[in-house]
Amino acid sequence: MSAPAPVAAMPGGLLDGQELALQARGLSLDYGSRRALDAVDLAVPCRRVTALIGPSGCGKSSLLRCFNRLNDEIADCRIVGDVRVFGADAYAAELSLPELRRRVGMVFQKPNPFPQSVSENVAFGLRLAGLRARLELEDRVEAALRAAGLWEEVRDRLGESALRLSAGQQQRLVIARALAVEPQVLLMDEPASMLDPISTLRFEELVVALRERYSVLLVTHNMQQAARVADYTAYMQAGRLLEFDTTDRIFTNPRLRGTEDYITGKLARDEE
């Protein structure tokens, strides 16, 4: 591999001088004979929220899962191209996959807490690091829950099954679980699509707050959400990344017709 390029080929020197968390260059992905990503270039800056929008099935989730290599779990998935996390090749042979995934946390569309207690859920990753001391575990669980804005709601229910929390609480629990292992990047795959409006609002506030410490790549179907929380927005269609710009410009003055159609709802959007 060649030395990491400091900046991806982005239009107008958009990200010039910014530190990059994630980069993909010429990234193509096939499921068997079906092409899901076609020569995608993307750069995600540090400590910013980048939104990924586009019609259903355009490859947003596939792209997301290249950065923590969750696509490796799919048997007939082939990947060509360059994926970098903080400049390091994510597909290097000597790379430690668990370490990569620890640093690149992920939040899924459906809240998926383990069928254990609230605190055990958050402590899951910590136990992988060999943490056993009760006090330290408790401290870190509390810190993670605070960071996810859930502490006040569950401080008395730490021993309860996580499955008894509401959907919105479960989603924030899952974020706390990801934060507990001290990631640098958070991948979010339509994390608010199963939440009611109030939970969604709380969730969006959380994402904005998380921006101070983490780089966030957010897949969303909700245009208003992207407009509210994202600094940058990328538009994808049919496996290609068509446009990348600041959120303001994407929503007020997109360069491409397709982007505009999608944003204004002319292109069929699939709200779930």
Partner: peptide, 13 residues
């Protein structure tokens, strides 16, 4: 909603 600045224990994981 304000999220308190994350106060992780000092030594990293």
């Amino acid at each position: 909603m304000s999220v308190p600045a994350a106060s992780f224990p000092p030594h990293s994981l």
